[in-house]
Write a protein that binds this DNA or RNA. Sequence first.
DNA 1: ATTTATTTTTGGAATTATTCTAATTATTTC
DNA 2: GAAATAATTAGAATAATTCCAAAAATAAAT
Lengths: 164, 164
Amino acid sequence: MLSYENRNTTKNNSKKEYTVIMQLSPEYKERLDHALEKTGQRSTKQREHVFSVILEKRDHPTADEVYARAKSSMPTISLATVYNCLETLSESGLIRQVNFEREPTRYCPNLTQHAHFYCKESGEIVDIELPDSVIDHLKAALPDGYTVQHIEIAYDGKCGDCHD
Amino acid sequence: MLSYENRNTTKNNSKKEYTVIMQLSPEYKERLDHALEKTGQRSTKQREHVFSVILEKRDHPTADEVYARAKSSMPTISLATVYNCLETLSESGLIRQVNFEREPTRYCPNLTQHAHFYCKESGEIVDIELPDSVIDHLKAALPDGYTVQHIEIAYDGKCGDCHD
DNA sequence: ATTTATTTTTGGAATTATTCTAATTATTTC
DNA sequence: GAAATAATTAGAATAATTCCAAAAATAAAT
């Protein structure tokens, strides 16, 4: 899953710097580049890396968690950059932000129409796929003249694993 | 809407302290007392006042806004107390917390099953009443063995007033 | 009614997640 | 390859909320 990329190799070979970056599959790399280009932003090593970190383990990490994971293979990345990257990736529509009550924002690579279930017992966050019909009903509940940009649906309770 | 309550009247009448508190209608006062009693908590002047402030203007104020409104007729109340009161009122099921993305928590006296629409243009937050059927459909989307405690639904977009 | 025990309130300090800032570094454009 | 633009970085700043320990209020027990 990891690949070495040799950069800044000096002529006399006395000082080499290696940076480990995660390998983004060609289709995701292309998706990233496209999305960034569309919003006039550059495809950088850090953005690529943060994106790959989020795609690798398809859960719902906080910025801090993303930072920890990102650092393990790119030790020089800063928390501010992680925040910046998460922001640009969200803006570009490559990932989604997920908010639960007063908890830190989490990030989610699942772009399908879905809700989130937060298990108060295990702390687990589970994606809940929603049929279009449910969304249609939700939209139908709005007064005339309202236009929706986004609907965020968050359940909480007890997940299947946490029952007796 | 306001009433004076005379307290701490000393025997010689030389030093009276008046505290202005909002009048909670008898049914709400009773509802408050009941709810607090059920959770073994005391009905205090501050809790009563914060409750009345929230009921008075049925919008979705933040803690800071509640604090500002509360202070105008109870100047000695502290922000910490407002937070405490809002917490106990929420726990007792008398008000609801409403969260929008990274915004400060807002508080809502509407206890019916409803969602919130946040207009990105005006900043207005509007209650959206939801038919039971929609909630049923949402519950039906959960995997077997999951039990829901609460579903929070937040729309954002443009409200009717903000269209051309 | 006083005393005693328990809750609440209070102001300020502490915390936490996030954003801002200004300098450095990287990338693109000419 | 130099100039222009954008992104990264470390650390400071901010904002909402929680924590803390002392004082005040309320309830319970004598």
